[in-house]
Amino acid sequence: MGIKLFLTIYFAFFLGGCSAYSMRPIYSLNNIFSAADSYREPYNAGRWLAALVNYNGKEKIELVDLRLKKLVPLPGINRQDSRPISVAVTADGQRIAFIRQRSDQTELMIYRRSLRTLQRIELSPKGIPQRLSLDGIGKVLAVQVSRNGRLDIDLVRIEI
C-alpha cells in the first residue's frame, strides 16, 4: 500500500506534469536572419516578426513578413539620431509600438504602417519606458516604466 502510494505521488509530481522535447528548427525562416551582425528582442505576431537588428554597430527596427520571407519597408521609423530599445507589433502587422532613446529622452511611440505616421505617447505620471508588449489587435499596450528607482507596469488603452 505504502509503495503504491509512493509510486503514484512520484509519477504525478515528477513525470506526469512535464516532458522534455527537442524542438524542430524551421530552417526556411532561420535563413532570413543571417545578414546582420546581431538580432535581438524578437516579437512574434504570427505572420509578422519585429526585432532589433544591428548592422555595423547601428541598431534599427525591422519587420519581417514570415509568409513571404522578406523585409517590410518602414519609412520614417528609424532615425539616425535615435536608438530603439524595445519593439512590438500587432497580429495584422499594421501597428508597431516601440521605445527609442533620442539624445537625453526616452520616447514611447506608435507607428501606423498604412498611414506611415508616428505618434508619441506620454506617460502619466512621467517615467522612463523600458520594455513593452502590445496585444494582437493594438488596443492595449503594457509598458515597463522606471519611476524613482521603482519598476511599474503601465497599461495604455489606445483608441483604434
Binding site: D152, D154, R157, I158
Partner: peptide, 29 residues
Amino acid sequence: CAPRVQRSPVGLLSSNQQEPALSGDGTKL
C-alpha cells in the same frame, strides 16, 4: 484619439514589476 494611460491594477501592491507580456486578445498580462 489620445491614448489613455492607467497603472497596472496590482501596481501599487507589488514592487519591481518587469517584462510585461500581453495575450493576443489583450485580456491577460
